[in-house]
Amino acid sequence: MSIGTGVVLFVIGAILVFALNFETEIVNLDMIGYILMGAGFIVFVIGLVLLARRRQAITTSRTGTDSVTGERVEQRITEVDDPADRVV
């Protein structure tokens, strides 16, 4: 969600800077556009960092044959790699 928000802020800022060509005495639309573009870039980068730090699941699958019955046995183990659970 934050990646999309960053893109939207950046696009709105670019529209204010490059597409609109009128001036007002109250506010400087170019400066607001540059601020929105900067904020959009920062939110986009934060979204990428948070996406990279997301939990990762590791699934290990082992297949073997039971020596007594001769049946095929499959074992799956799923481990969650959570950075918050690591002990330093």
Rank of each mutant, 00 (worst) to 15 (best):
M1P: 08
S2T: 15
I3V: 12
G4R: 08
G4F: 01
T5P: 00
T5G: 11
G6R: 02
V8W: 00
V8D: 01
L9C: 09
F10T: 04
F10V: 02
V11K: 04
V11P: 00
I12G: 01
I12P: 03
I12Y: 12
G13R: 00
I15G: 00
L16H: 01
V17H: 08
V17D: 07
V17I: 09
V17F: 04
A19L: 06
N21A: 03
N21F: 01
N21R: 09
E23P: 00
T24W: 04
V27W: 13
V27I: 15
L29D: 00
M31T: 13
G33Y: 03
Y34I: 15
M37S: 14
G40R: 05
F41R: 07
F41E: 07
I42E: 05
V43H: 05
V43Y: 04
V43L: 08
F44P: 02
F44M: 08
F44G: 01
V45Y: 04
I46Q: 05
G47M: 07
L48D: 03
L48H: 08
L48G: 08
V49C: 11
L50M: 10
L50A: 08
A52K: 11
A52T: 12
R54H: 14
R54S: 15
Q56D: 07
A57L: 11
T59Q: 11
T59I: 15
T60P: 01
S61N: 14
R62N: 12
R62H: 14
T63G: 10
G64F: 14
G64S: 14
G64N: 11
D66V: 00
D66P: 00
V68D: 09
V68P: 00
T69F: 02
T69R: 03
E71K: 09
R72K: 13
V73A: 12
V73E: 05
E74T: 15
E74M: 13
Q75L: 14
R76A: 12
I77E: 09
I77K: 04
A84I: 14
A84S: 10
R86M: 12
R86Y: 07
R86V: 13
V87H: 05
V87I: 13
V87C: 04
V87S: 06
V88W: 07
V88G: 04
